[in-house]
Amino acid sequence: MLKFTEDHEWVRVEGDIATVGITEHATVQLGDLVFVELPEVGATFDKGGDAATVESVKAASDVYAPLAGAITEVNQAIVDEPAKVNQDPAGEGWLFKMKLDNTADADSLLDEAAYKALIGA
């Protein structure tokens, strides 16, 4: 199940694990990323908590936890090479995975059509 947030994140839910990244629209708006800071594995977040930071030359942007849960895995490859997020935001540029406190919460996120409408695509 692929979902989106109004903060331009994508969320792929498989069982009770959600993989989170930022959308291509977000990467275009942010520009080339030069630094990514990811949460510690095991860290827990409420929905909307500051989970990660992505930075371009000009600015730092927070990435929020799309749902409540605990971090199970982070993508070290994008820490080593932030440009991967720009190159493949929906694939190799994923940010982190989290175990959801409540899988059903994902239903509250935007579906692809709603997200496309949000960004005027």
């Binding site: 520009g31 080339d32 030069v34 371009s56 030359v57 000009k58």
Partner: peptide, 11 residues
């Protein structure tokens, strides 16, 4: 603020 190439490539 920037053109199509973006800040990094423009720099």
């Amino acid at each position: 603020a920037q053109f199509k190439d973006g800040v990094l490539k423009e720099h």
